[in-house]
């Protein structure tokens, strides 16, 4: 087995609030192989974005380890981190608020190049910007326009070009297509997959859209209230979901065909509980149909491998 490019070990991120600790990411251990895509799915507030930001050290982890290419990220000092960030980039969700409205497309894409002193002169920089615009399929004539003149799909392409500017190896894609219409979403997904192949990129792909995550990922991790409840290769997760939450999540998606039209669906009751000082045991127990007294006992649940590559955190599944 090849060495994973990125690994997290018992990663924890708690936010202090007046009412106690908010467990945004709780004991998450993941690994991503070189050139692979790990999809992270979950509903709003389950900690998937915090996970992505913590891995890049945009927020400081509370506990646990992050290993990038065998290096301990937590131990890096500021200047080491700055060099490392060239290799680790992020694409943000909202192309409307993540771009400076007062910079042109050219300036926006050139910004990371200038900050990191990559190109020695202006001509080289402009060549690089053109190359990047070409890569993300932005027409050259747009280089002097401002973000407000462009639609969502093109704006997201600027975000992607900025992330690619420093030749990264690892990119966290934080809901990169959620704000886009389906036809444009499909264009951007195709672009991301082409780029991955061409530049041998590794993605951590965060989304709440299950059909998107199945399409793009080689492996998928499902999160619920800060905990990773299931992790498996994409096809296995969809054909044989093990965790009751994953089952419910798959059941809940409306599929665009008529075969499931009059089927009675199992619908999850209740809502997500507060992540502040959560109850011990399984976080999903209050909504779970299979829950027993043992589920709410402390320390009963482990994240264990039920078949090769398929990990589940549920005492009823192992």
């Amino acid at each position: 087995m090849s060495q994973p490019l990125l690994e997290t070990k018992n990663l924890k991120k708690y936010f202090k609030t007046p009412h106690g600790n908010l467990h945004a990411v709780d004991d998450v251990s993941l690994s991503i192989e070189k050139g692979a895509t790990l999809g992270v799915v979950g509903e709003s507030g389950c900690g998937k974005s915090t996970l992505g930001r913590t891995i890049l050290r945009l927020t400081q982890a509370t506990d646990g380890r992050i290993l990038y290419d065998g290096r301990e990220i937590q131990a890096c000092n500021e200047s080491e981190m700055r060099l490392l960030r060239r290799e680790m980039q992020i694409i943000f969700q909202d192309p409307f608020s993540s771009l400076n409205p007062r910079l042109t497309v050219n300036e926006l894409i050139a910004e990371p190049i200038i900050v990191n002193h990559i190109c020695e002169n202006k001509a080289a920089r402009n060549r690089r910007v053109e190359e990047l615009m070409d890569m993300v399929e932005l027409a050259k004539r747009l280089s002097n326009t401002y973000p407000h003149e462009l639609d969502g799909g093109r704006r997201q392409r600027i975000g992607i070009a900025r992330a690619l500017a420093l030749n990264p190896r690892f990119i966290v894609c934080d809901e990169p297509v959620s704000a886009l219409d389906v036809s444009v979403q499909a264009q951007v997904l195709n672009l991301l997959m082409d780029l991955q192949e061409r530049l041998s990129l590794t993605y951590l792909f965060i989304t709440h859209n299950l059909s998107v995550v199945r399409h793009i990922s080689s492996e998928i991790a499902v999160m619920y209230m800060g905990v990773c409840v299931e992790k498996a290769p994409a096809n296995m997760l969809f054909s044989h979901p093990r965790h009751p939450y994953t089952e419910a999540l798959l059941e809940a998606i409306p599929t665009p065909d008529l075969s499931s039209r009059n089927k009675k669906r199992k619908i999850l009751k209740g809502e997500v509980a507060s992540p502040i000082n959560p109850a011990p045991g399984c976080r999903f127990a209050p909504r779970c149909t299979k829950a027993t007294a043992a589920c709410t006992e402390n320390g009963g649940i482990t994240f264990s491998e039920v078949e090769k590559g398929h990990f589940v955190a549920c005492i009823h599944c192992c």
Partner: peptide, 21 residues
């Protein structure tokens, strides 16, 4: 529109979106 939606069951490696804006 239908070609743009990633499938939950089939095995399509590439989507067929509508070009342009």
């Amino acid at each position: 529109l239908f070609g743009s939606i990633p499938s939950l069951t089939g095995n399509v490696r590439r989507l067929n979106p509508i070009g342009g804006q």
